[in-house]
Amino acid sequence: MDYFYAFVIGGGMCVIGQILIDTTKLTTPRILVIFVVAGAVLTGLGLYEPLVKLAKNGATVPLPGFGYSLAKGSMDGAKDGFLAAISGGIKNTAAGLTAAVVFGYIIALVFSPKSKR
């Protein structure tokens, strides 16, 4: 059943993204920002956590899941004091961010852009 919910919820978020791309003039970075911020805000309101419980990776792999991790880190940190409250978001997503930066840098050093056919 986990797999079913992961598929439906994850796929559903992609459909929302596709509709935004097709029907609005929003540029890609804007859509990314909207998704991440929406995920963080929903988490702050306590609405995203149940979705994660239900769909697991179906809710954490799409970009709102990134916002969820950020917000969750901050909210968990808030229990340990002010400093942890503002640093918790990055701490919680540090692995992914570091991987994206370091591996991205290596990839960019190795590969060159190709013309499209």
């Binding site: 890609t28 970075p29 804007r30 990314l32 920002v33 991440v36 911020v37 963080a40 805000v41 988490t43 702050g44 970009l63 990134f66 916002g67 950020l70 917000a71 880190g73 901050s74 909210m75 940190g77 808030a78 004091g81 002010f82 409250a85 503002i86 918790g88 978001g89 990055i90 961010l97 994206a100 930066v101 991205g104 840098y105 960019a108």
Partner: peptide
């Protein structure tokens, strides 16, 4: 340029999460 498209996402995401953290504190 690693951050030319992803930068806005990080800036907005981190800012919002910090605000949420402060509010919950």
């Amino acid at each position: 340029k690693l951050f030319s498209l992803a930068g806005p996402v990080l800036v907005c995401g981190i800012t919002v999460s910090a605000i949420i953290g402060i509010i919950s504190y």
